[in-house]
Write a protein that binds this DNA or RNA. Sequence first.
DNA 1: GGTGGCGATTGACGCAGATCAAGACGGTCT
DNA 2: AGACCGTCTTGATCTGCGTCAATCGCCACC
Lengths: 231, 231
Amino acid sequence: MKTTLDLDSAQHQALLQCAFLSPLSDAARDAVMRTMTVRGYQTQDIVFREGTTADTFCCILSGLVRLYRVNIDGREADLGIFSAGDVFGECSMFLQNCYPADAKVAEKAVLAHFDTAMVFELLPKFPDIAQAISGILAHHLKAAQNCIADDRLKTAPQRVASFLLARCPPGSPSSTFRLPYQKSLLAGTLGLAPEALSRAFSQLRLNGVSIMGRNIAIEDTEALRQFSRSE
Amino acid sequence: MKTTLDLDSAQHQALLQCAFLSPLSDAARDAVMRTMTVRGYQTQDIVFREGTTADTFCCILSGLVRLYRVNIDGREADLGIFSAGDVFGECSMFLQNCYPADAKVAEKAVLAHFDTAMVFELLPKFPDIAQAISGILAHHLKAAQNCIADDRLKTAPQRVASFLLARCPPGSPSSTFRLPYQKSLLAGTLGLAPEALSRAFSQLRLNGVSIMGRNIAIEDTEALRQFSRSE
DNA sequence: GGTGGCGATTGACGCAGATCAAGACGGTCT
DNA sequence: AGACCGTCTTGATCTGCGTCAATCGCCACC
C-alpha cells in the first residue's frame, strides 16, 4: 500500500467497509490492497476523463466525487455523486480499460486507487474478488435504472421526495437530517436546474417538509412516500 | 439441458455466441448449460416481475423482450429492449435474488433460463463465469448511463439519430437497413411518446434520412453524427 | 461595519415534448 | 372488392421545466 497520507479512523473505516473490500477473504483483501495507492485531491480536480485508459478504479475514503458526461458544447449530465465508502470506475475493468464518463472531485477528497490490470490478474485466483465487483456493478446498474425510471415517470418534486425518503431511516414516521451536499449538486444528480430544485422544495413544504438551509425535517414520511409515487 | 423445444441453427448460434457463454471455458460452459432450461413465450407474456424472487436469468434465443418499470398508476418506463443473443436479469444474482424490473415478451420468443442459485454455486469453481457476468453487467451499466446522458443532453431527434447511427456499420458513408422492431417500441426505449418519435423522424428527413415504413436510408452518416451531438 | 462573492430563491418567458383527438396508411379476413 | 383493425402520422393544446435576469441571504475578508 503506497501512500504518503496518514488516514484517520473514519477513512480507514470507509476503506475496509466499502463494497469492494468488505466481502473479501483476508487473503484476497491483502492481495488487492497491495495494488492500492492512496491520493488526496482538491475540489474540482479531475480524477479521470471519459475515453481515457483506465489504470485504476477508486474507493472514496473521504470527500465527494461527481461522475458525469459532457456534451460537445460543454453541457454536463450527472450520472451520480459518490461519497465515503463508495466505489466507482470499476466498470472500466470490463470495458476495454476505458472509462465511460468523467469523474471530478466535488469536495476535497482522499481516494484509494486499485490497479485495474493487477486486480484483473487476481480474479482467477480469488473468485470472491469478481463476486464483489459484480455486486458493485449490479448495484450501480440498479441505481442507473432507478434514475431512468424516475426521470421518465416522476415530476421534479416527486424525484426530490424520493431522494429525501432514501435518506430517512426506514420505518420511522418522521425524520430530520442534513443534506449530504449543496443544493446545486443535488439538482444536478436529479437531472434538474438549480431553480427547478428550489421550486420543488417550495412545493414539498406543502407536503410537510421543512427546509432550513441544508437541514431537512420531514413530518410524515408515509405521506411523502405516497406523494413520491403518484400525484 | 431441459427443453421440449427443438432449436434451429440461428437459436443455437444466439445461445453459444451470447456474452454469457461465449467467453467461457468448455468446462464452465458445460456446467452452466446443465442448469439451463429453454422455454417458448408468446407476445405479451410476462417473463418476470419487479420484486419477485429471481430463480433464473435469461438469454434470448429468438424474439424480443422488453424490460421496464411500472408506476403506481400504470404508466411504464422502458429500461431496454433485448433481442437474440442478449442476456438480461443477471443482475438479480447480486441483488438478493430479486428482479429490479418487469420483463415482458414484445415479440414471440424463445428464452434460455439459467438457474441463479446453481450458477452462483459455480462461481468459486469457475472464475471465468463471474468474469463473464461482470462483463455483461458493465455493458448494461454503460448502456444505462448512455441512456441517462442522452435523456438529459439531447433532444428527441438527436436521440433518434444516435439510435440510427448505432445500427449503421461503422465507417460507411451511407447506410440502409430495417428497424429491428416497430416504432411504438422504439419510441418507448427512447423515452418518447410515439407521436414524438414520428415528429422526430420527420425532422430527420431534413438531415438526409428517408423513412419508408420500417426501412431506413441514411444519406450521410457523418453529417447525421454531427447533428446527433449538438444543434 | 462595509464590501464582495457565491449559492439560493423568485419571477417572467419560451420551448420541447406529453396528451388528446382525428385522420391516413397499411395489413388481413370475408 | 370491401370492411376491419392496428400502427403510424398530423394537428391543436397543455404543461413541466429550462433559461435568463434580478434579488436575497449568508459568510469571508478587508
